[in-house]
Amino acid sequence: MIDLNLLIVIRTTLQVTGSALLISVGLGLLAGVYIALNDFPGRKVVVSIINTAMGLPPVVVGLLVLLFLWRGGPLGFLRLIYTTQAMIIAQVFLATPIIAGLTLAAIQQIPQKMKWQARALGARGGQLAWLLMREARYSLLAAVMAGFGGIISEVGAVMMVGGNIKGDTRVLTTAIVLESQKGNFEAAIVLGLVLLSLSFSINLGLTFIQQRKPGT
């Protein structure tokens, strides 16, 4: 099992989850900060939707993405079904609400006084957001880790929209499902350990960034 195929599966996993995380971090931070700093009609409804979406069932997301991307679906002309791109899209839908929701909570938790102070000192728009994000960086990194954890361990949605195609859209989680269905439990366990160590090393890296001494 430790062979070229395994390396391809690991690479696909990192590619898919990495791209999805990048996009989700961008969208999630943006949405979270915007909602935290602005008042607009229907804000409470939007916040409730985000909080609900933090617990979206992956198979439901997978099903919706599948129906949209299928050749006969509204976005079928893009020809994205059974590609890594389709998997990235599904994972973005799963991770973005998590990151947005936690970002929103983190920014709102910053004492109001500090926001007033920053505004009084002339911080506006992007500058203010950047300042507050720096202030909330521990929580924001926790948000990123939560988003990452949610998608690297996810199997239902990527199975549906990716198809678990060998050498193409097979990732660690779907490979584990396949190997256990085939009764190759040893291989499934090895894959599971690989997934755990991968997840651990990435979280370790993020934690190191998070726990850096202030001022560096």
Binding site: I23, G26, L78, R79, Q85, G126, W130
Partner: peptide, 24 residues
């Protein structure tokens, strides 16, 4: 910051679409 994120997302979207051209 915002501009950078937008640019990144935009780039990734383009990548998504263009990489699916070779369909035949």
């Amino acid at each position: 910051m915002k501009v950078k994120v937008f640019r990144l997302v935009f780039l990734l979207l383009i990548l998504l679409v263009t990489s699916s051209v070779a369909v035949d």
